[in-house]
């Protein structure tokens, strides 16, 4: 404001002083305008010394104009005053731009700092989660290894059970499962369905092996030879199967897991025309369902 006032005073003074004689040279008019612009711009805040010097140049030109309005000296001094005013204006703009740049750089540094902090926080979270996941994976692997160990142990026990079963009975694999065949001669007296004492010993071993093999569905089938009436044979075979079933239940096999059926002479394994063949046909079979089939029940 101070500079605007000064310029105005100078302008009015020079105009009133010379109005009657001569118009100011173009350079002086432009110098006044340029100084007025500079004194209203950033230079008035940021380049006070330069502005003061430019004012001195303008005053020299104004004095010269008062003394010799149309002289070369006045024109040259006005030219210099014009350039000084323009220079001051440019310096003001420069200093303002420099301040804006510094503020922007500070803001950017702050933003970068914030973003760095956020990134570091996110990184820490990710690392924590990775650690948690690794712990979970390690736990799962341990559990899987334990499970694998349990399965292997169970399979080993089942194989051992089957092996011990082979020692007391004929064991064969069929599509319907493992078939354990016990000779009728060993289990029962002729025409009877009560177990012989020796049969109980053998069934004890069978029961232990079946329990060791784990939960499987069992069917006890009674078979006879073809002598006698089919109805009697049917009844006898069922009674014998139920006898074996009851004994196995008494040795620890769950009741719901075991069935009994009497098939009479319907499924011979040998011709009934010889004593040996008929002896083979008089038998009890225990059909052990495959593990998958049991699970599906």
């Amino acid at each position: 404001m101070k500079y605007i006032a000064l310029t105005t005073v100078l302008g009015i003074a020079s105009l009133s002083g010379c109005a009657s004689t001569s118009a100011p040279p173009r350079e002086l008019v432009e110098a006044r305008a340029a100084f007025s612009r500079a004194s209203q711009g950033p230079a008035a805040r940021l380049a006070l010394v330069d502005l003061h010097n430019a004012q001195g140049e303008l005053e020299r030109a104004e004095r010269s104009f008062t003394e010799a309005p149309s002289s070369d000296v006045t024109r040259d001094l006005s030219y210099v005053a014009l350039r000084r005013a323009q220079t001051v204006e440019a310096r003001g703009d420069t200093l303002q731009a420099d301040q804006e740049r510094e503020r922007a750089e500070q803001e950017r540094a702050a933003l970068t700092g914030q973003q760095l902090t956020q990134t570091q926080t996110a990184l820490q979270q990710s690392q924590q989660q990775l650690q948690n996941t690794q712990q979970t994976v390690a736990m799962t692997q341990t559990q899987l290894a334990a499970e694998r160990q349990r399965r292997m142990e169970a399979e080993r026990q089942a194989a051992a059970a089957l092996e011990s079963l082979r020692r007391v009975a004929a064991v064969r694999e069929e599509q319907r499962g493992t078939v354990i065949t016990l000779s009728g001669e060993v289990l029962f007296a002729t025409g009877e369905s009560a177990l012989l004492p020796i049969a109980q010993q053998r069934l004890d071993q069978v029961a232990r092996a079946l329990i060791d093999q784990g939960a499987r569905h069992l069917v006890v089938e009674g078979h006879t030879d073809s002598r006698g009436s089919p109805a009697a044979n049917q009844q006898l075979s069922l009674a014998r199967a139920q006898s074996v079933r009851a004994y196995l239940i008494s040795r620890g096999i769950p009741e719901g897991q075991i069935e009994a059926s009497g098939l009479g002479p319907s499924r011979p394994v040998a011709p009934n025309d010889s004593a040996e063949g008929r002896a083979n046909n008089r038998r009890v079979e225990i059909v052990v369902s495959p593990a998958a089939a049991t699970a599906a029940r």
Binding site: A90, R91, D93, T94, L95, A97, D98, E100, R101, A104, E105, R108
Partner: peptide, 13 residues
């Protein structure tokens, strides 16, 4: 110099 400073300020902004 003004030109350079203004360009630098614009770049910073």
């Amino acid at each position: 110099r003004r030109s350079a400073s203004i360009a630098a300020a614009r770049q910073a902004a």
